[in-house]
């Protein structure tokens, strides 16, 4: 029983670490602010949640009231991250768009985001 639980914990945390690796490489390699935000918003949410679920599962080795409460709190943090992380992404993205950071496009390299707005007829 314990060995299966350990396997689940290792699996969850390792997959979370793998996704975090993708996020980090994405943040370092992607060309502009908006594409980096893609990597940050998605990868950060899922990798944090997976690792947190792994640690919540690890608490079930010795089931008692205290460890169950700790597992509940870890799940609470996971839910918090699930709601808060996309919202923070959204806020940072909005700040970048408002301060007109240059966006990268495949056709003509960096253009200012106000140019994009004109193209779209806003």
């Amino acid at each position: 029983m314990n060995i299966y639980l350990d396997a689940i914990v290792v699996l969850l945390t390792f997959v979370g670490l793998l996704f975090f690796h993708g996020t980090t490489v994405g943040i370092l390699r992607f060309p502009d602010f908006y594409t980096r935000m893609h990597a940050a918003g998605k990868g950060d949410t899922l990798s944090t949640m997976l690792i947190l679920f792994g640690f919540a599962a690890y608490q079930l080795h010795h089931p008692s009231t205290a460890t169950l409460l700790v597992a509940g709190k870890i799940i609470f943090i996971a839910v918090l991250v699930f709601i808060a992380s996309p919202t923070a992404t959204h806020a940072i993205m909005d700040a970048g768009y408002e301060s007109e950071i240059g966006a990268w496009s495949a056709k003509d390299g960096f253009v200012s985001s106000c140019l994009i707005r004109k193209e779209k007829g806003e």
Binding site: I77, L80, D94, A95, S99, E100, S112
Partner: peptide, 28 residues
């Protein structure tokens, strides 16, 4: 738990703060 809450608030506050400074994009 406290750190997670605090981190969320710091992100929101910093984003709102730098949103007002339009020079942030012009430098780049």
């Amino acid at each position: 738990l406290t750190y997670a809450l605090l981190n969320f608030i710091v992100s929101l506050a910093a984003a709102r703060f730098f949103q007002r400074k339009r020079t942030a994009g012009l430098v780049m």
